[in-house]
Design a protein around this nucleic acid. Structure first.
Lengths: 138, 138
DNA sequence: CCTTGAAGCTCTAGTCACTGGAGAGTTTAG
DNA sequence: CTAAACTCTCCAGTGACTAGAGCTTCAAGG
């Protein structure tokens, strides 16, 4: 698991090649060593750092939060309360998102139920969407 | 409720002024009549069209889907099955998102539980995020 | 009628987190 | 040694807005 080309790193982490180069460019990933021909070669530490980044992204952390987390991780003598805080905040955000989506879902279902599959002029979906009164759920 | 300036339209629909101009630019909103001085003036039809767009956006439809919906609505003799289809697809997308978020949420909670509030070197949050095995929930 | 300040105008550029393509160079298996 | 597959850099584009500069127009009060 050493000296991976960028495509292999991409393969093992499920991250696209361009995305890895992008992360390097914005300073989330370090500049890796290069071959004499100029190609990037990655080691295990890069694999786990990228896995960290991807996983955090998938969890919905934005780049700035990940940068903080990485900075924290690079100074292991700090207390982890700060990390914990960021995570708790994320859970709260996730809860809000889930609630919102559940609301949207029930409104969509309601609209579909009302759709009589007739002509569009009778279609309740468009009518509902056009009605400014139906913004209660925001 | 006639001859609204762009700011008044923005006020009644909860949409920003720049966003309205943007919608006009990309062809979602029509070019409204202008005063002799070049300012846009809107009528009731614009209010409901913009309300439709905003509501659909809030429900998570993307611009392209809204464009389709509007095109459909402009031809009231078509059957509404197509509209129904678009809405059903949206529900499926919402369901997927909710599932994903629920998965993320439980992992975040687990990470928080494991955080012993000690040093980061013992903090399970960063370790968990760095572990490529923890991608099961995707 | 005139002034004044809020609101409008266009145009350009920036945001976030990538994604895609052109055109050239490098690596590796057979 | 060749050919295919991969990688390089650089630049531009995506979606859905958002912000700002610098200027013009509108409407209400005096």
């Amino acid at each position: 698991m050493r000296d991976l080309a960028i495509g292999e790193l991409a393969g093992t982490t499920g991250c696209k090649v361009q995305t890895i180069r992008y992360y390097e460019q914005i300073g989330l990933m370090p500049h890796p060593p290069r071959t004499s021909g100029g190609q990037r070669r990655y080691a295990d530490e890069h694999v786990s750092r990228l896995a960290f980044i991807r996983h955090a992204r998938d969890l919905g952390f934005d780049i700035e939060a990940i940068r903080q987390l990485l900075a924290l991780a690079d100074q292991p003598d700090l207390r982890c309360g700060e990390v914990d805080q960021i995570a708790r905040q994320r859970v709260a955000e996730i809860d809000t998102k889930i609630e919102q989506l559940a609301g949207l879902r029930s409104e969509m279902k309601r609209m579909i139920r009302q759709c009589k599959r007739g002509r569009i002029s009778e279609c309740r979906i468009i009518g509902t969407l056009a009605n400014p009164a139906f913004t209660y759920w925001r």
